[in-house]
Design a protein around this nucleic acid. Structure first.
Lengths: 199, 199
DNA sequence: CCGCATCCGAATAGATACTG
DNA sequence: CAGTATCTATTCGGATGCGG
C-alpha cells in the first residue's frame, strides 16, 4: 500500500486504494496480455524504476489481483480478480483514445496490441452475424494476433496457430494511411473485420 | 497536470495522464450526481485540502472533462467527455466492492447514492420486462432518489417528484439486515426492484 | 463565508548503485 | 535476472492568509 487509503466506504475509493497509485494500472495492462516476468514488465514500462515495479507487484499480490509463479524466475499473472479488471481497463483506454497523444509520445508493441483490443467495438461485430477470425500482426520485431469470436476480441502475444490473414509492416503505425502493409492470406477477412475497430 | 505524463502512445496511459492523480476520479464521482460548487465537492472529499481540489478542477477543466459555470458562485459540472466516464467509473466501483472496507471507513450520503447506482445490474433488470420505478431514499439528513427505466439506473440528489415508494431510515447502512426501515407507498415496487441490485 | 494561493513538513516517486 | 538499498526531486496534506 504505497498510497494512503482514502478510508471511504465506497467501491470506487476502495478500487483506487488498490489501483490508484502511479503505474499500477499500467502493470495490469501489461499482464492482460498474459503472464510476464519482472524484466519483461519493466521493459514495457519505460521510466518505472525497479523499486516501484517491485512495490506495485507486491501490493497487487497482497490484494490478490496478481500472483507470482514459484521460484526466482516465476512469472506474474492476473488472478481472477485481476482478470475481472479487463473490461474496466479497456473502457478507460477507449475513453483515453479521445485525447490527442503528445508529439513525443513513445510507442511499444505491447501497447499497440492492447489498443487493438480496446478499439474493438462489440456492437459492430454484432451486426455481422457469426463473425469469427484470427489475424496475425508482424510489426517490426514483434508478433501478436487477434482472436475475434462471439462478438469479442482478445489480443494475444506471439504467432497465431492458423491465422486467416497476416499483416506485416515495418512500422508501428500500420493504421496510418499510406503505411506500407503486406497482406498474406485472405485479405477479405481483414476488410470484413476492419469496421469492428475504432481506429 | 500535477502528475508527470507517461508520454505513451496508449489510450490507457492518456486516460491516466488526465485521471490518474490522487483524488481526481473521486472528484468525477462527486460530479456524476450532478453539478456542485467547490465547497460542496470538498465536503464529500474529506482530507483533500482546498489547494488540491482547485488543482484537480483546473486540470479537469483544461482537459474539458469539467466546466465551471460563470461567476464566483459557479457550479462545476461534467462535460460530455466527463459524462462518458460514467460507465467506466461505475465499473471500477463495482470491482472495488469486492474488497472489504477498513474497519474505520467513513460514510457519506453522496457515496451511498453513488454506490446504489454502481450496484445496479442491468442484466437482472432485463429479466423483468418493462421494469420502471422511482425510489426515494431519506437517510439521516440526506435525500436522494433512484430512477430505474430501460434497464438503466440513475441516482439523483434531492427528493423525487412522484416516487413509487419511499424508504426512510436513520442509519446510513440501511442495506444491513436488522436495520430499521420505514416504507411509504407501494412496498411491492421495492421488492421487485431489489434483486436488480448487488447489495 | 467561498474560492482559491502560498507555505512547509511529510510522504511518494525517480534514478542510480548494489546484492543474492 | 530479480529485486533491494539509498539518495534526491516532486507531490501531497494541512494550516494559514486574503480578496470578493
Amino acid at each position: 500500500m504505497a498510497l494512503k487509503t482514502y478510508n471511504q466506504n465506497c467501491g470506487l475509493a476502495r478500487a483506487l486504494d488498490i489501483l490508484g497509485d502511479r503505474w499500477t494500472l499500467l502493470v495490469v495492462r501489461g499482464l492482460l496480455g498474459g503472464p510476464l516476468r519482472f524484466s519483461a514488465l519493466q521493459a514495457q514500462l519505460p521510466g518505472i524504476g525497479a523499486n516501484l515495479l517491485a512495490d506495485r507487484l507486491k501490493s497487487l499480490s497482497h490484494h490478490a489481483v496478481v500472483t507470482k509463479g514459484d521460484g526466482q524466475q516465476g512469472e506474474y499473472r492476473l488472478t481472477e480478480k485481476g482478470e475481472a479488471l479487463r473490461p474496466v481497463v479497456l473502457g478507460l483506454a477507449r475513453w483515453g483514445r479521445g485525447f490527442a497523444p503528445g508529439p513525443t509520445a513513445r510507442s511499444h508493441p505491447a501497447w499497440t496490441m492492447f489498443n487493438f483490443e480496446a478499439a474493438f467495438r462489440p456492437e459492430r461485430a454484432a451486426e455481422l452475424a457469426g463473425l469469427s477470425a484470427v489475424i496475425e500482426f508482424r510489426l517490426a520485431q514483434s508478433v501478436f494476433h487477434l482472436v475475434i469470436r462471439n462478438q469479442q476480441c482478445r489480443a494475444l502475444p506471439g504467432a497465431a496457430v492458423s491465422p486467416d490473414v497476416r499483416l506485416i509492416s515495418g512500422s508501428e503505425q500500420m493504421l496510418e494511411k499510406g503505411a506500407r502493409v503486406q497482406i498474406q492470406g485472405d485479405a477479405s477477412v481483414f476488410d470484413r473485420v476492419r469496421p469492428c475497430f475504432a481506429l
